[in-house]
């Protein structure tokens, strides 16, 4: 256990000594939420979820802020795990040679990812509350936090698949923005209510956030199992890629 905490402490140091990443963590989500809130006109929107019209009708600014909170959050989460993954991929063999076991390295990595994601989620939650009235704070926080975990795993998978940082970043940005800012955006997405959308990574966590804010039939915790299942599938994909890359 002490080895895991020691190693995660060193991983954390490698992150916070990179000024750019620190700036990214604090600036990007705030900037996206702020611009998202400013771009939304002051009017109510007809919003249908689970086949029912949400009543009272939400304002566009609320939807915009939720979506851009998620966009900022998943971008930062996936970029950080991608960065850590790219750095660690080359160092893992040497760490193993110095008697660190695979579970120790993975646990230390997970600990760092969870800590960072908690921090960003907390920051995003607090900042977004400027525009939102949240009915159920736990549901909202968990929705955001779980989406950050899902996209962290995406970042990790991409770090295994690409050779260059630039290509990895393009992929991360394309997937994150396409999913959270475009596809899941009820303000202009015509795919929003299509059945297959539940295959998209942010689908259930966004639903959780919406349910925690708007007055809806179902509770946010009905979606947790799907988010966790999605996470398990992504972890399995990562492990399979890891296995084939090694051999």
């Amino acid at each position: 256990m002490s080895k895991i905490i020691f190693l995660s402490n060193q991983f954390l140091k490698t992150l916070y000594r990179d000024k750019f990443l620190v700036v990214l963590i604090f600036i990007l989500p705030v900037l996206l939420i702020f611009v998202g809130a400013m771009s939304a006109p002051d009017r109510e929107v007809l919003f249908i979820m689970d086949g029912q019209i949400v009543n009272p009708a939400p304002e566009t600014v609320e939807i915009s802020v939720i979506l851009y909170s998620l966009t900022g959050l998943v971008l930062v989460a996936s970029i950080i795990s991608f960065y850590l993954g790219m750095n660690l991929n080359k160092l893992v063999p040497r760490l193993k040679q110095y008697s660190y076991t695979t579970p120790q390295i993975i646990s230390a990595f997970l600990l760092v990812v969870i800590l960072i994601n908690l921090l960003i989620t907390l920051m995003v939650t607090v900042f977004s509350l400027n525009w939102l009235d949240v009915n159920d704070m736990i549901g909202y926080f968990l929705g955001l936090f779980l989406s950050s975990l899902l996209f962290s795993t995406f970042g990790l998978i991409i770090s295994k698949l690409v050779d260059t940082t630039a290509l990895g970043l393009y992929l991360i940005l394309t997937i994150s923005i396409l999913d959270t800012a475009f596809l899941e955006n009820p303000l202009f997405s015509r795919r929003y209510n299509e059945d297959w959308m539940n295959l998209m990574p942010a689908y259930y966590s966004i639903k959780m956030a919406f349910r925690a804010i708007f007055d809806l039939k179902e509770n946010w915790y009905d979606d947790i199992q799907f988010v966790l299942f999605y996470e398990a599938v992504l972890v399995a994909i990562y492990l399979i890629i890891n296995y084939f890359k090694k051999s």
């Binding site: 611009v35 998202g36 400013m38 771009s39 939304a40 006109p41 002051d42």
Partner: peptide, 11 residues
């Protein structure tokens, strides 16, 4: 988001 009329209020 900013110079695009899709971002109505900021545009």
């Amino acid at each position: 988001m900013i110079v695009n009329p899709m971002g109505e209020a900021i545009y």
